[in-house]
Computed example of a mutant assay.
Amino acid sequence: MKALYVTLLALAIFSCKNTNDEAMVYEDAKQVAIDSMKMEMAKQRVIDSMKLEAQKQQEQARKEVVVVNQATPATTTTTTEKKQWSSAAKGAVIGAGVGAATGAIVSKKKGEGAIIGGLAGAGVGAGTGAIIDSKKKK
């Protein structure tokens, strides 16, 4: 009979355990996650606004510049043009990327293969681009 009373008493003690602490811990963790997401969203807004401002500055730099000469009433309009990459530079970059990827895939030593393939690809791409540049000039 004493064993039955002890068992019932132990059952009553464990059933009265306060589970509110677990709920509070869960709510705290949930609030930390929400705060973290809000901070990330705020950071992203700042980054987006900086990108937008940089884009506005680039557009402003591309606009026409008007120069007025006091001696003559005519106005001169000049436009600034964005510098283009030469075909040799484009070919070198593309060749280096393709050569590095191919060298890493084919070679047993991935790092060495990527370096050698990148250098070889850059050389071939620059040469091909130079040929294209010379044909465009003619």
Rank of each mutant, 00 (worst) to 15 (best):
K63Q: 14
T19R: 08
K43P: 04
L8Y: 01
M41A: 15
E59N: 14
I34Q: 15
L52T: 12
F14Q: 09
G95P: 03
M39L: 14
A104F: 03
A10H: 00
N69R: 03
T76E: 05
E53Y: 02
A3I: 09
C16P: 07
Q57W: 07
I116G: 08
K63I: 04
K17A: 15
G91K: 07
F14N: 13
Q57K: 13
K43D: 13
G99S: 07
P73S: 13
G103T: 02
K51G: 11
S86T: 15
A3T: 09
G127R: 13
L11I: 08
T79M: 13
V32N: 01
L11C: 06
T77Q: 15
E53F: 01
Y5D: 13
T102H: 08
A92D: 05
A10V: 00
I116D: 08
L9S: 01
A71Q: 10
V93P: 04
K82C: 01
K30Y: 13
M37W: 04
G129V: 04
Q31K: 08
V93R: 04
G95D: 01
T78Q: 15
M50Y: 05
P73F: 09
Q57Y: 08
Q55S: 10
L4S: 06
I47K: 11
Q70E: 04
G125L: 05
T77D: 08
M37N: 12
Q57E: 14
D133F: 00
G129R: 08
I116F: 13
Q58V: 03
V68R: 06
K90M: 14
T19Q: 10
A74D: 06
Q57V: 07
A71M: 08
F14A: 14
S49D: 11
G121Y: 01
T78H: 13
V25M: 02
K90P: 05
N69Y: 02
M37F: 05
G117I: 04
S87I: 03
M1P: 06
A33C: 03
K138L: 06
V93T: 06
A104I: 00
Q55M: 04
N69L: 04
T7S: 04
E112F: 07
